[in-house]
Simulated scan of single mutants.
Amino acid sequence: MRALVVDPSAPCGLRLGTAADPEPGPGQLLVQVSHASLNPGELGMLAGLPAGHVGGHDAAGIVVRPAADGTGPAAGTRVLAFGPGAWAELLAVSSTDVAPLPRGAALAEAAALPMAGMTVLRTLRAAGSVLGRRVLVTGASGAVGRYGVQLAARAGAHVVASVRDGAHGPALAALGAHEVVVGLTGLRRLAEPVDVVLETVGGPYLVAAWALLAPGATLQSIGWAGGEPAVFPPGSTFFPGTARTLSSFGDAAAVGADLGLLAGLLASGALSAQVGWRGSWERAEEAVAAVRERKVVGKAVVDITPPPPSPGPGA
């Protein structure tokens, strides 16, 4: 099969090449991938992967071989999938990590959902009900942040979106943000404390967000896009009264039900996929550069296009 494989000599660390067809294991089905998305964290780890490795986790396509144990969707079903090796024509994935796509959900948009959407959904669930509570989303202009704004607002929260560039404010307000604060200065000047933080930037943003927690509030650390260390001033982790908490996120097991929920919201128009770049995977170098240089508003989706037909005899 054709696949985007790790190539240390390529300018972006990836090239469109070939890899062995995956062989589904017990409880796995085989998906013919039509679209896949690129996550910044995955691109950041390419240098540590062996040449020829097929990366990616977010995919959408058609089931071509159902799971041998009878679990999961039948052949011919359009699905959203989350599993290693998604940047390829074929993906072997656990039947617990796929969800059928309802009518109204486009495959290309669905491919943008799995990792970022599932991360936000699960961290919000871990924080408990956010109805009527103040939810701060840092890095709100990124893919995870945009889903965070939408899902928190849909759950009844008062959403505060933190961005580095105020030009993103109107778009985030349209997605459900009630307040937009710009830069570290704007974050530190936030007038009221917050009850939940979806923190995606790390470094000084994490420290500033921690200082804004109300008694009993929680900070969910779900990313470190800024790449800077977080240095807490002495005594800053002590608060009188009900405990504040800082939690990590890493639960990506058996995500099928959550993918189904996200797909339903997408199909109904209640969730926007926020696809900011889309093109053939033959333009992978362009897509990777756009993600790394933060030129993509939302997610980058590559179309897994078939190879051109071979010329016939005498052509």
Results as ranks from 00 to 15, higher is better:
G145N: 09
G203M: 01
V79F: 08
F249W: 05
T18M: 03
G260A: 06
L90Q: 06
G156W: 08
A92E: 03
A257W: 14
H168S: 12
A75P: 07
A10F: 01
E285T: 07
S9G: 13
L265C: 13
R154H: 15
G76R: 04
T305K: 02
L175G: 12
I304V: 15
S247I: 00
Q274L: 06
G235S: 12
V182R: 13
L266F: 02
A88P: 01
P193Y: 12
S280N: 01
G41E: 15
T119G: 07
L91N: 09
I222G: 10
L90D: 00
G279P: 06
W224C: 04
V144R: 06
V291S: 01
D195Q: 15
E199R: 06
E109V: 07
A315W: 15
L14T: 03
G223I: 02
G186M: 09
G312L: 15
A105L: 01
T245E: 12
P170L: 06
P102W: 06
R278K: 00
G56R: 01
V160Y: 09
P234I: 11
P24C: 00
V194C: 10
T218L: 09
A19H: 06
P102R: 03
E89A: 13
G276H: 07
V181I: 08
P73N: 08
P309L: 05
G276Q: 07
H35C: 04
L219P: 13
P84K: 02
V159C: 09
A36L: 01
L101F: 03
S94D: 09
V149C: 11
L16R: 08
R294H: 13
H168N: 12
T138P: 15
A19W: 03
R15H: 14
P229G: 08
G41P: 02
D97K: 10
V63N: 08
E42G: 11
T242E: 04
N39T: 03
G76V: 03
L30T: 11
G312S: 14
C12D: 05
A59L: 03
R65P: 05
G276T: 07
R283W: 01
L46Y: 02
L151G: 09
D303W: 12
S247V: 05
W224Q: 12
W277F: 10
L113N: 11
N39K: 01
R2M: 03
V288P: 02
A289C: 13
V163Y: 08
A157Y: 09
G76Q: 05
R125E: 15
D303N: 13
A152Q: 13
V159R: 09
G227N: 01
